[in-house]
Amino acid sequence: MLTSLYVEGNSWFHRLPVRAKLIALLLLSLSLFATQSLYLLAPAFLLCGWLYFSLGLTLRQAVARVGFVFFTILVLAAVNLFLLPLPEVAALVLRLMALVFFAAAVTATTTISAFMDEITILLKPLERMGLLNAADVSLALGLVLRFVPDIFARYEAIREAHRARGLPIRPLTIIGPLIILTLKDADTIAAAIDARGFRRQ
């Protein structure tokens, strides 16, 4: 149900360590926002676009992933045309689209486990300060992945129950039971986690 947006592949960008990619994304966004020059932004846009489309995604997949974000960018650009001079609008659009291409490229070439390893490292300082427990974050993430299919099945059951009684399917009559039924499981799940001694406290 929740398949990650990672795409199998062995391009040079796939092989780059996550940290390098994330730092590159950060530096790219900082430098793109620092410049207004179309002579820098247009090549950056083409380069990021080329990078994204060379990752092994099919064209349709590739377009579907960034399509919605591009749609918003273009709508806002259309509004901007009335308010700002044309070169400025072009710079804004190229900059954002370059960033979105690069960000989508990082997402498509990084596995969830690679991200999680990096996040665990990033959380270490917070852990040392006693603010949180890095293991808890992975545990919570695992719980989400584990329970989404269950909760979706519950949603379908409630929807079927509505149909069987001839009731219209309204968000209100679905959300209430869905949340109560789901959160009522919290005690048993928590007991199961503690019984296995996952959190050692």
Binding site: L5, R65, V69, L96, F101
Partner: peptide
């Protein structure tokens, strides 16, 4: 999902 959405408007 993905970083692209966060980078968008």
């Amino acid at each position: 999902g993905g970083l692209a959405v966060l980078a968008g408007p």
